[in-house]
Design a protein around this nucleic acid. Structure first.
Length: 524
DNA sequence: CCCCCCCC
C-alpha cells in the first residue's frame, strides 16, 4: 500500500481489471463513487446534441440543493453510474463541476467548435459532456458552473480506448488523488515545450493543510490558465480548494501532484471538512509569507542536520531522498545586484557562497526560499535595485545577509559536486535564521513589527504542535460521503461564473506572450 | 465530430 507524506487525501487503488476499488486514508472529501476508482468504462463521453429535440425536459435548477425539492416526478431520473453505453432514453440530473473554454478544432475529417464540461450527479459520479457547433450555440450561457441541470437523451458513448488511458496497466498502480487544503502560493502560468514539439501551459501552486504540510501541485493546460488565473486574482484571500483526480509523482525526492484531464477544482465548497479548515484559517493571523516560513521551519525541525564540511569533503555522506539541513554563515551573495534568470523556466534565483579553505559551497535559492531571505518577491527586488539600489531597503537587507547564520533545508537529490570535487552546489528548499531573530534588519519599525509577528508565530507554532493527527470520524464520513442521501452542498460561486463570463469575452492569442528568452537586466 | 497524460 502506497502512502503519501501528507495529510488530506483520498487514495484509491484499483485492484484488478474488472475495476473493483478500495479506498484508504484521508479524512476529508470522499468521492466514493468517483468513476476513476472503478476503471475506465465509466469515463464516458456524453454527447448532448439530441437533447435539443426535447428541450422542455431541460429544467434549469438554481442550485444543487434544490434538486431535492423538485416537484416534477423524478422517477425517470437515473444516476450517471447506471447510464448504459448507447442508451437512447435517459435523464440525469447533474451539476456542472467544470466548464472548459470553447475551442475550435480542425482536422482532416471535420472542423468546428467544441465545448467540454465535467458533470457530477448527487452520488458524486462524474461524466464528461461534449458539445459541438449547434449545441454550443443553444447551450452557451445556459450551463453555469456549480448549477445543476436535468439533461436527457443525448448520445452516450463509450470512451475512446485510445484516449482513455495511454497505459492501461498504469492504472493499476497509479492511484488518483483528491486533495483539499488552502492555497499558500500561486506561480505564474507559462508555456513549456513538450518532447513531441507541442506546447503546454503549466502553473505551479502550493497547497497546505492546517498542520502546514505543503505539497506542490502543478496545474496543466487550460486549468493553468483559467482556474489558475482565478486563484491568482483572489490570491489576497485565503482560498480553500478541493482538487480531484490528480496524479502523484515523486520528482527528485519530492512528492508532487499534477492535474489530469479529468481533474476539477472546487473553490470553497460547502462540506464539513472545508468549513473546519476555513474556520481555522480565518482565526489564524498569518499572512502568506509567514505561512510559507512556518512550513519551512516545520520541515527543518524534522530534517537531519549535516555539517557542510562533511558534505564538501565526502561525496556521499547523505541518503537518497532525505531532507537535510545545514547551518552556515553566508560568505557572499554572488549575484546581489541582479538575481539570475533561469532560461529554461521563468524564475529567478539567488546564489549564496560559503568558502572553506579551497572548498566552496554554492547554495541556490529559488522562489520561496529566495523571497524568504530578502523579504519580497524577486521581481520586486529587481525593480527596487534597478531604480537605485542604495536606497532600496531590500538591497540593504540582501547585503546584510553576509556573515549571518542561517539554516538551509535541502533534499539530498538536489546536491551536485563539481568535477574537481571542490565545489558543491545545493538547491535549497527553505531557509531559516539559525538562532533568535537575526534575519537581517531593515529599520527599527520592522524590528517592532518582527517582535509582534514573533509573538503571533509562537502562538501558531504552539497550536500546530498541539494538533493531533485527525482520525476519521464516522460522523464526518457520513456528512461528506456522497453515497449517503445528503447531496454535497456546493456554494453558489458567483465569482467563478463571472470569471467564466469574462473569459468568453477575452479573445485569446494563440501563442500567449510568455517570456521565453533569457531576460537581460540593465546593469545598475 | 475532440484529445494522445505533459516540464523541471
Amino acid at each position: 500500500m502506497q502512502t503519501f507524506p501528507v495529510m488530506e487525501y483520498n487514495h484509491s487503488e484499483v485492484n484488478n481489471n474488472e475495476g473493483s476499488a478500495s479506498i484508504t486514508g484521508g479524512y476529508f472529501y470522499r468521492s466514493m463513487t468517483d468513476p476513476c476508482m472503478y476503471g475506465r468504462y465509466l469515463y464516458g463521453d456524453l454527447y448532448l446534441q439530441k437533447t435539443l429535440k426535447s428541450q422542455t425536459r431541460n429544467r434549469i435548477l438554481s442550485n444543487w440543493t434544490q434538486i431535492q425539492s423538485l416537484t416534477m416526478s423524478t422517477e425517470s431520473i437515473i444516476s450517471i453510474n447506471s447510464l448504459q453505453s448507447n442508451q437512447k432514453i435517459w435523464t440525469i440530473e447533474a451539476m456542472v463541476l467544470r466548464q472548459g473554454i470553447i475551442k475550435t478544432f480542425n482536422n482532416v475529417q471535420n472542423n468546428g467548435k467544441i465545448w467540454k464540461m465535467i458533470l457530477a450527479d448527487n452520488m458524486g459520479t462524474k461524466i464528461q459532456a461534449v458539445m459541438f457547433n449547434e449545441a454550443i450555440r443553444k447551450f452557451e450561457g445556459i450551463f453555469q458552473h456549480t448549477k445543476a441541470y436535468l439533461i436527457s437523451n443525448g448520445t452516450v458513448k463509450k470512451p475512446n480506448e485510445k484516449f482513455a488511458n495511454v497505459h492501461p496497466s498504469l492504472e493499476l498502480i497509479n492511484p488518483y488523488v483528491h486533495i483539499f487544503g488552502f492555497v499558500s502560493s500561486i506561480g505564474q502560468s507559462y508555456v513549456i515545450k513538450k518532447k513531441n514539439g507541442g506546447e503546454m501551459h503549466k502553473r505551479e501552486i502550493t497547497i497546505m493543510n492546517k498542520e502546514l504540510d505543503s505539497l506542490p501541485l502543478t496545474l496543466w493546460g487550460e486549468m493553468a490558465l483559467n482556474e489558475g488565473q482565478m486563484l491568482q486574482e483572489n490570491s489576497d484571500k485565503k482560498q480553500i480548494i478541493i482538487v480531484s483526480s490528480l496524479n502523484g509523482t515523486t520528482y527528485q525526492g519530492q512528492f508532487q501532484l499534477s492535474t489530469t484531464n479529468m481533474s476539477t477544482i472546487q473553490f470553497d465548497p460547502h462540506c464539513i471538512q472545508v468549513q473546519k479548515l476555513k474556520k481555522w484559517l480565518h482565526s489564524s493571523p498569518t499572512n502568506e509569507m509567514d505561512v510559507q516560513q512556518l512550513a519551512v521551519e516545520k520541515k527543518i525541525k524534522k530534517a537531519k542536520e549535516i555539517n557542510i564540511r562533511d558534505l564538501l569533503t565526502n561525496p556521499s555522506p547523505i541518503m537518497e531522498n532525505t531532507l537535510y539541513y545545514f547551518q552556515a554563515t553566508i560568505d557572499d551573495v554572488e549575484n546581489k545586484d541582479q538575481p539570475w534568470y533561469d532560461g529554461s523556466i521563468p524564475r529567478y534565483h539567488i546564489r549564496l557562497e560559503f568558502v572553506d579553505g579551497n572548498d566552496k559551497a554554492i547554495v541556490i535559492l529559488f522562489d520561496e526560499p529566495a523571497t524568504s531571505l530578502i523579504g519580497c518577491t524577486i521581481l520586486d527586488y529587481i525593480n527596487s535595485v534597478r531604480k537605485d539600489k542604495f536606497t532600496s531597503c531590500f538591497y540593504r537587507k540582501m547585503v546584510s545577509c553576509k556573515s549571518m547564520q542561517y539554516k538551509f533545508l535541502f533534499n539530498s537529490n538536489r546536491v551536485t559536486h563539481s568535477a574537481t570535487g571542490q565545489t558543491l552546489t545545493i538547491i535549497a528548499q527553505g531557509i531559516e535564521v539559525a538562532q533568535g531573530d537575526n534575519f537581517a534588519k531593515i529599520n527599527e519599525a520592522e524590528t517592532h513589527e518582527t517582535k509582534k509577528k514573533r509573538q503571533l508565530k509562537k502562538k501558531i507554532v504552539e497550536a500546530i504542535d498541539a494538533v493531533e493527527p485527525t482520525p476519521i470520524e464516522d460522523e464526518d464520513i457520513n456528512k461528506s460521503n456522497p453515497n449517503e442521501n445528503e447531496p454535497i452542498e456546493i456554494e453558489d460561486d458567483e465569482n467563478l461564473n463571472a470569471f467564466y463570463k469574462r473569459q468568453k469575452q477575452i479573445l485569446r492569442k494563440k501563442n500567449p506572450t510568455i517570456l521565453k528568452k533569457k531576460i537581460k537586466l540593465e546593469n545598475v
